[in-house]
């Protein structure tokens, strides 16, 4: 059964996010703010590996595998604040907590910096944002 947690465009968790970024060639990067949360009520989310102990992580991943000349997980930096984006490392998972609760109050803002790096003009569909294995249950 799929989790009700997903990525949203707004803090109120009303607009499912259309992922991706557009970079003007030469602009180096584009920043986006997305929200990870669940609009359901009375739910909580934990890492399936050790609920309540292990971290819930959001990380750049491949769809399904890297391609030559395509985008790479290092094209994405993740942080919990805009300031932290500068020091974030491309491709590194972001810990968003050990237990998250549903509803707008439990939404986690995630800042995503998409770097152009060696990409040239074009559209690249090789990467995604993905979580580790999660267990959703009644709060």
């Amino acid at each position: 059964m799929a989790t009700t947690w997903a990525f949203f465009a707004d803090a109120g968790l009303t607009v499912p996010l259309v992922g991706g970024a557009t970079i003007i060639d030469g602009d180096v990067y584009t920043d986006r703010l997305v929200y990870f949360g669940s609009p359901a009520t009375g739910k909580k989310l934990e890492a399936a590996s050790a609920p309540g102990t292990d971290a819930i992580e959001v990380q750049p991943g491949y769809t399904p595998s890297p391609t030559a000349g395509g985008s790479d997980i290092t094209n994405l930096k993740l942080a919990l604040s805009a300031v932290d984006l500068d020091s974030a490392i491309g491709g590194v998972p972001l810990i968003v907590g050990t237990t998250l609760y549903s509803g707008p109050g439990g939404a986690v803002p995630i800042y995503v910096r998409t770097l152009e790096l060696t990409l040239g003009p074009g559209v690249y569909d090789d990467v995604e944002l993905v979580t580790n294995g999660l267990a959703e249950s009644d709060a």
Partner: peptide, 12 residues
């Protein structure tokens, strides 16, 4: 389960 979001990158 897990949540994922395809992240296409368009370089204009």
């Amino acid at each position: 389960s897990s949540a994922s979001l395809v992240w296409p990158i368009a370089v204009l």
